[in-house]
Design a protein around this nucleic acid. Structure first.
Lengths: 226, 226
DNA sequence: ATAATTTTTTAATCTCACCTAAACAATAAC
DNA sequence: GTTATTGTTTAGGTGAGATTAAAAAATTAT
């Protein structure tokens, strides 16, 4: 008997997964916000997910995924991120335009389908925003060398590896600044007054970065250049 | 105000489109069969589609698409067939395994998305079963030179161009016979007793084809070879 | 500790798309 | 031209997933 997951259920599991990774537990309200539903709707769905043994729900506390629920959530995230790679690499969408379509595509396909998609895309390690793609077993290669760009200090050389915010306006702003994944910079200066930065790119062009931008950029430190 | 189409509605429009092309009008019952629903469900949905002005529904008669409804139906068919090409060409699915996934994928993407997919696939003219893919304007290049393989006569040389039945068991049988789109044959003989045929392929290998197979194969006549 | 506020749950309804069973048309048979 | 058959519609109901509004529990403030 094949336990089938509805689209709505998959969305709940995905959101609970992300929330519990941030806060240990997913509160009713935080789930409701992310899904743009009412708390009452969340209570009802949590009841159902609990009966399916995909979450453990403690009344008035919140929800935590079971091992089964986590498997489903990770698989959905894997599909989402693979489709994002498809949309950017193959269909030439800009990176700020892929989320809405990936939200729909992530519900399509079984394990075989997903592995074919993965192979076709060349088994990418990250999606277009730098987020790691879980492998077929649900394991992550969480890149521990990646830190927030607001944690840098002068003269450090680093490579942009991801964003912690994939909202369109932020991504478009990065495009305007000509900042993209894989680009290397050096920290020239930091200004505590407003938290802004001065960086230089590989051509020696310098640019100013606001606190807001640095705070949502994920970077990897490089060895000093000779 | 964006008139949004539900998945269920798209499926109805697609089925009505195909039925009305065969019989001029789509009867309640024929729609119900194709969608594996009850006639009562069809009545209800036709009412809604009529109120949206996508079909014209005459009680006890049947349904016919309006121009708007036809546009939606053709767009859905276009997406379905493009996704089938993707699944076979890119994800390496066999041609008998793509329908179920395409049924889900066909509901995803807007006009821009579809044109990107089309471009990525190289603007294919037909899907993996030989069915023509409507262009972005909804126009078909209905291949009038294609006829049923049961209409052939002795010594004619022809190329397999499509199938009029995409059921898995039929497609797998064709694979077993090593018959695929684009392959050329010559009619050696026809046996009225059971309606079967003897053909030869380009290597001179002869093979026997049942009435059932010939009746569902679409072929294009070639000029006689010198 | 009690009051005020926030969060969660319950209760009652809504919409969508489906179902079954019965009533009603249209078609075909005699 | 009644009668039988087939096809369609109505009527009433179900289940999933949502809603609003009110009740209950938890948290925070005084």
């Amino acid at each position: 008997m094949k336990n089938t997951v509805s689209i709505s259920q998959e969305n709940y599991l995905k959101v609970i997964f992300k929330l519990q990774n941030e806060h240990g537990i997913a509160s009713n309200q935080s789930i409701a916000e992310k899904l743009e539903a009412t708390p009452a709707a969340v209570t009802g769905m949590l009841r159902k997910l609990a009966s399916l043994e995909w979450v453990e729900h403690t009344a008035y506390q919140g929800a935590v995924l079971t091992a089964k629920g986590q498997r489903i959530a990770i698989s959905t995230i894997r599909k989402h991120r693979l489709w994002e790679v498809f949309l950017v690499d193959k269909l030439k969408f800009k990176w700020d335009a892929v989320h809405q379509w990936a939200e729909e595509l992530e519900h399509i396909g079984d394990a075989d389908f997903t592995e074919r998609l993965d192979a076709f895309l060349g088994c990418p390690a990250t999606d277009p925003h730098g987020d790691p793609i879980p492998d077929a077993n649900g394991d992550w290669t969480g890149n521990e060398r990646v830190i927030g760009a607001d944690k840098l200090s002068r003269e450090q050389i680093f490579t942009v590896r991801g964003v912690s915010n994939s909202a369109s306006d932020f991504l478009q702003h990065l495009d305007a600044l000509n900042i993209h994944l894989g680009k290397r910079f050096e920290v020239l200066d930091h200004f505590p007054f407003d938290g802004s930065w001065e960086w230089s790119d590989e051509n020696g062009e310098s640019l100013r970065i606001s606190r807001e931008v640095a705070g949502q950029l994920l970077v990897e430190l490089s060895k000093k250049e000779k």
